[in-house]
Amino acid sequence: MLLIRCPYCEEERPELEFRNAGEAHIARSANMAGESDDDFEKFFFIRSNPKGIIYERWRHIHGCARFFNAVRDTVTDKFVMTYKAGEPKPAKLPGASK
């Protein structure tokens, strides 16, 4: 069981308290109704599914209930860092080697 740091609670808590909520930094268009089919396809269906670093959303559902973002390595299943919802994608990752 993984330990995940909630950026709001500022604590590492067991994975049981969290729920994954899919890939992060996929913005919903301000003009949703006017999106082209292609753009909507990219927004709704296409995900990066990378081998290595993934940016994803998690919710501390059995804790503070906040959604936040996390950087995880899909190869090692290790969390690199977590940050609050709305914050930009980190430019540099701590201790990034891959």
């Binding site: 909520a21 919903r28 919710r59 559902i61 209930a65 959604f67 919802a85 709305g86």
Partner: peptide, 13 residues
């Protein structure tokens, strides 16, 4: 509830 919270916290904060 999760769906509502998701939009409120992340899309329409």
């Amino acid at each position: 509830m999760n769906h509502m919270e998701d939009y409120l916290q992340t899309e329409f904060p």
